[in-house]
Design a protein around this nucleic acid. Structure first.
Lengths: 249, 249
DNA sequence: CGCTGGATTGACTTGCGTCAACATACGTGG
DNA sequence: CCACGTATGTTGACGCAAGTCAATCCAGCG
């Protein structure tokens, strides 16, 4: 795996495979601005921001963004594509702790110990904004809306995970799969994508790992929902036919 | 186990039911100062802190500190005692998402939406420091070590939960119970309590809810570990006889 | 066009849940 | 301080949801 280059390159720098810096990477004109940035910021504040968040990075499908133990330097905002985060036990067993889609933050696990506690791997070719955390911290001390936004992002992650614990701790296989589909649907919708028809970027095995189920069980539940006319499944393409029915499962 | 008295009561202070404010509640002289506060703060910084964090609160066993939906105003530091946090599903099923002991923070789930997303209930008579979040935010914008500390606390919570997901998603009953015991042991030890002999404040059912198991299963696993001479169980009193053995489970 | 990784489906197994009986600890009021 | 009633905890017998194993199907890609 490549180390992540974060520091802005001087103007004369040759083109790089990894992090790139150019004028088009800025927040004030980003399509994701509203999902990514706090409201209550003036144009002036945005100008400040553009000076600080300078690099973006492409990650190809299957490529590792960061690994457990990597020194923590930046958090990331997913501009395009999607990722999975994976935790590994000593004995080699691994579990996916999250799928992360466009507009969502990534990497906040690293803040606590200055190093990452999971692996982040692209599920498809993706693009990220790299936000150097030290810079972000300074910014938070100057701009109150930014401070609040960062706190919300972190707290949001805490809530997301406790919802997951609920799922893993007290739902049966059928409920887990339906909750998963509804969750993906709702997050896509929040990002103005279709919430009724979407492509799952992960395999059945990855879904299973995330949901605490075996891939066969995931597959059986999807077939079951299809038989019940709640969804339409064509491999990775899912169409939700009866969201309420799914919710009632 | 005796409740741990942390702040001395001034002789003349009238007894209070809820939040109390008096000079003796301060961070610079608190026994938990090192677990609770960032290092790198000057005595001067601590003096600032003492002005801002003014109140403590007693909560009796079984009493609710905050409930799902309550407006979020403060985070808490547990000075003495312990708490459980509980998430409830629409249909009434509930799951315990955490046990929180002396020296640990509580309430950060509320930051995201300005309201709490779980119930926090005392497992025994407990004492908390109340830290008004708006005040803490200001403080973070002024004191860099404090800012970093708060970020670490939040990130620590994210990591804690992803460990839990690992447990719930990929461990069998036996492993869950042993991981739980080792985790409690390690946290007590970090707070300078005995890590080899301790009183569980929660019931088997509560343990089960947390671990995604039924109370009977928890009980069976504890009996099994006792038979294997890994632990000694006397109701809620646990003595760890062979921590390495437990780790190997 | 055939190979490979992923998905589906069926048959069988098993770990944990369920139900039930009994034991023990705990708190409250006499 | 004791007695009783209720909470909580333990243990056993049995059932079922999900795991395991295996055969087959399918799609994407070189």
């Amino acid at each position: 795996m490549m180390p992540i280059s974060v520091a802005p390159m001087p103007a004369a720098a040759p083109p790089q495979r990894e992090a790139v810096r150019h004028g088009s990477v800025n927040c004030s004109s980003c399509a994701m601005r509203n999902v990514c940035m706090p409201c209550g910021m003036s144009e002036e504040d945005f100008a400040r921001l553009d000076e600080l968040i300078l690099t973006s990075r492409k990650v190809r499908r299957g490529e590792v963004l960061y690994r457990t133990g990597d020194p923590f330097q930046s958090i990331y905002a997913i501009k395009a594509g999607s990722f999975k985060t994976v935790v590994t036990l000593r004995d080699g067993r691994e579990q996916i702790t999250g799928f992360h889609i466009v507009g969502e933050p990534l990497g906040m696990d690293g803040i606590c110990n200055e190093q990452h506690t999971c692996d982040a791997i692209a599920l498809e070719d993706s693009v990220l904004c790299i936000i150097p955390f030290r810079v972000l911290e300074s910014l938070c001390r100057e701009l109150r809306p930014m401070q609040r936004h960062v706190h919300r992002l972190m707290s949001g992650e805490i809530i997301r995970e406790s919802g997951l614990m609920m799922l893993l701790g007290s739902m049966c296989a059928e409920e887990r799969v339906s909750a998963f589909l509804l969750n993906i649907s709702q997050r896509l919708q929040a990002r103005r994508f279709s919430g009724t028809e979407f492509n799952l970027r992960m395999t059945r095995e990855e879904m299973g790992s995330f949901l605490g189920l075996k891939l066969e069980t995931v597959s059986r539940m999807l077939s079951k929902f299809q038989k019940e006319k709640l969804i339409d499944v064509q491999g990775k393409l899912i169409r939700i036919l009866d969201a309420d029915g799914l919710r009632r499962v």
